[in-house]
C-alpha cells in the first residue's frame, strides 16, 4: 500500500470514530499515531513516563473531537500534530494558547471529498519536498518544531518549499466568504 493511500485511510478511521464510535478504527489509528506522538513529545524534552501519559490524553482528545476534524483544512497527521502541540504547551509551559477565531464552517459548507483528497495529496507532496531538503536545513526546521529554538533563533528565511497548501486553503476560504456574503 502506498504512503498516500495510507494517509487517505486515516480519514476513513476518523469518520468511523465520528459516525459509529468505532473502537477498531480507533485502535488502528492509535497503532500508527500513538508511538509518533510519544516520539514527538520525547524529542521535545518530555520524560518517557510523562510522554506516555500525555499521548493517552492526546489520543483520547482525537476520539472526543473526531466530529471537529475537517479534512479540507488539515490532513490527519496535521490535526494530530496540533492537538499534541497544544497539549505540550499546556503541560510544559503552563500557558494558555490563544487560538484564532473559528470560522463558521457550517454543514452547508462541509468539505467535498475532492477537496479532502487534494489536501491529503498536497500534504504528501510537502512531505516529499521536506525530505528532499539539504540535511542541514531540515535539521534546523526539526529543531524549531521540537522546541529547541526560541522564536528569535528561528531563521527569518525558512527556505521551506511552501505555497501549495496555502493556495488551496485560501481558495476554500474565499469560497466560504463568498457563500456567506
Amino acid at each position: 500500500m502506498s504512503e498516500s493511500s495510507t494517509r487517505m485511510d486515516w480519514i476513513a478511521e476518523i469518520e468511523a470514530i465520528r459516525d459509529h464510535q468505532d473502537e477498531r478504527a480507533f485502535a488502528r489509528l492509535f497503532g500508527h499515531f500513538a508511538p509518533r506522538v510519544k516520539g514527538f513529545l520525547m524529542k521535545s524534552g518530555v520524560s518517557a513516563e510523562f510522554a506516555e501519559e500525555c499521548t493517552q490524553e492526546v489520543m483520547a482528545t482525537l476520539w472526543r473531537k473526531a466530529h471537529m476534524f475537517d479534512g479540507s483544512k488539515a490532513s490527519v497527521s496535521t490535526w494530530i500534530f496540533t492537538v499534541a502541540r497544544n497539549r505540550k504547551i499546556d503541560m510544559l509551559r503552563k500557558q494558555r494558547r490563544p487560538e484564532p477565531e473559528d470560522l463558521p464552517w457550517g454543514p452547508e459548507t462541509e468539505a467535498s471529498p475532492a477537496d479532502v483528497m487534494a489536501l491529503a495529496q498536497d500534504t504528501e507532496l510537502l512531505g516529499q519536498a521536506l525530505a528532499a531538503l539539504p540535511e542541514k536545513q531540515r535539521v534546523l526546521i526539526e529543531r524549531a518544531y521540537f522546541g529547541e529554538l526560541t522564536h528569535s533563533e528561528i531563521a527569518a528565511e525558512t527556505g521551506l518549499p511552501l505555497g501549495t497548501i496555502k493556495s488551496r486553503i485560501r481558495l476554500a476560504l474565499d469560497r466560504l466568504r463568498h457563500s456567506m456574503s
Binding site: P35, M42, A74, T78, A84, D122, T123, L126, I165, K166
Partner: peptide, 19 residues
C-alpha cells in the same frame, strides 16, 4: 495551516517511541 502541515509531516516521520 501550511506551517501546521509541516509539523504534521515532521511528527509523522521523525521517529517512533514504543508505547
Amino acid at each position: 495551516h501550511e506551517f501546521d502541515a509541516v509539523g504534521g509531516v515532521l511528527m509523522d516521520e521523525a521517529g517512533i517511541e514504543a508505547v
